[in-house]
């Protein structure tokens, strides 16, 4: 690569990646009444306003419940699945692996439509349950992937050593395996949390009256009100995500797992 050329490409790439975020942050600090860039004057009033909108508070709580609860359930399902896939030669192991990965590849809008049409409507799930299950399904691939790589890095003879010292298979898992994949599980949790929290298309199909996730609520807020508070909320959410990933990288070496 040409020496003068590559910094230019790097700069362009960074502007492309970070630019939109900077524009949103700038727009959220506007003193004006509409969402514009460049901002008209500077103020923090739109950031303050975010915390006073009741529907934002409700949908934020909903999103938190989905992200934490859904990821937790996905881990409960994903950790044993990842264990089985990495430890045993299963007859359809590759197929299972592919199926588990599908929600990453298939567009969310299709997953959402399919879940609505063929799961939620026929079984008449409540909106809350439907959203919860959908988020679990979306996060599951990430947990299986990330935790699998932890299992693959852990030699299986450690479990055998524990068994020969008198442990049961289950005991060996909890006493020897689990303590050594803790950071992988935490990494999977963070990745799942962020994925679930930022998820739009699936939630769009499954949200209903009174039950909305935060991104959906922001969309519908913008349909009626075009003020900078949405930009302010976006900036806050982005900062939250950055903060989480920063802490994860700092303490876990997050990028090793993703």
């Amino acid at each position: 690569m040409n020496r003068t050329f590559s910094p230019l490409i790097l700069a362009a790439l960074l502007i492309f990646l970070i630019g939109p975020f900077l524009i949103i942050v700038a727009a959220s600090l506007s003193a004006g009444d509409t969402l514009t860039f460049p901002p008209q004057g500077l103020s923090l009033r739109w950031i303050a306003k975010v915390f006073t909108v009741e529907s934002f508070r409700d949908s934020f709580i909903m999103s938190m419940i989905l992200a934490v609860g859904g990821t937790f359930l996905a881990l409960l399902l994903g950790v044993p699945a990842a264990y089985a896939l990495s430890r045993y030669k299963l007859p359809f192991g590759e197929v299972v692996n592919t199926i588990v990965t599908l929600p990453i590849i298939v567009p969310g809008i299709i997953v959402g439509l399919a879940l609505l049409r063929y799961v939620v409507v026929p079984f008449s799930f409540s909106i809350g349950i439907a959203l919860f299950l959908a988020h679990t399904a979306l996060v599951l691939p990430y947990t299986v992937r990330v935790v699998s790589s932890s299992f693959n890095n852990l030699r299986s003879d450690m479990e055998e050593a524990a068994v020969l010292l008198g442990a049961t298979r289950l005991g060996a898992f909890f006493k020897v395996v689990l303590p050594n994949i803790q950071s992988g599980i935490l990494a999977a949790f963070i990745l799942g949390f962020v994925t679930s929290f930022n998820q739009v298309p699936v939630s769009l199909f499954l949200s209903g009256p009174g039950v909305r996730t935060l991104p959906i609520d922001m969309l519908s807020y913008m349909e009626t009100t075009y003020d900078p508070s949405v930009a302010a909320l976006s900036a806050l959410l982005a900062l939250m995500s950055i903060g989480i990933v920063f802490l994860a990288e700092r303490f876990l070496g997050f990028s090793r797992y993703v």
Partner: peptide, 19 residues
Amino acid sequence: SANKRNVGLVFQSYALFPH
């Protein structure tokens, strides 16, 4: 079963518990 045999095994990789 292996956990009730009272047979010890020193693995080639040692298989110590890293934590």
